[in-house]
Computed example of a mutant assay.
Amino acid sequence: MALSYKTRRRLALLILVVGLPLYIAAAWWVTSLFERPSLLVELAIYVALGFIWALPFKFIFKGVGQADPDAPRDQD
């Protein structure tokens, strides 16, 4: 079942406003359990985690920034 454009926009907003801060807090907490690595290793960990969180939601974010394809077009 394909999601409508409006549903995908609402889900994307929910993920960005609620899910992303929760994911950041969880990633921060998990990395704090271990001894702090060097700055470059820590940066690489956070970049990798930042990339990984978006993979499951790729289909939701795809095309959300475009105009609504289901909206009626003006006939001038």
Rank of each mutant, 00 (worst) to 15 (best):
L49W: 11
W53T: 07
S32N: 10
R8K: 15
G19N: 05
R8V: 01
R73L: 11
K6D: 14
F51C: 12
D68R: 02
L11Y: 06
R8F: 03
K58R: 15
I24W: 06
L20S: 10
I24Y: 07
F34S: 14
K58F: 13
L39K: 04
P69E: 01
D68N: 15
A25D: 05
V30H: 01
A44C: 09
V47R: 04
L22C: 13
P72G: 02
P21H: 03
L14Y: 13
L40V: 10
Y46L: 08
V30K: 00
L39W: 11
K62D: 14
K62W: 11
S38P: 13
R36Y: 01
R8I: 01
Q75P: 01
I45E: 10
K58C: 00
I60V: 15
R10N: 12
E35N: 07
L14T: 12
W29R: 13
G65F: 07
W28K: 05
L55W: 10
L55A: 09
A25M: 10
V47K: 03
P56H: 06
R10F: 09
D76P: 15
A25S: 06
L13H: 11
V17W: 07
S32T: 10
I52Y: 03
A54I: 09
P56G: 10
E42T: 12
R36W: 05
V64R: 03
F51G: 14
L39T: 07
T31I: 00
D68S: 03
P56I: 04
K58T: 13
L33Q: 14
A44L: 13
R10C: 04
W53F: 14
A71D: 07
A25K: 01
R10S: 12
A67K: 15
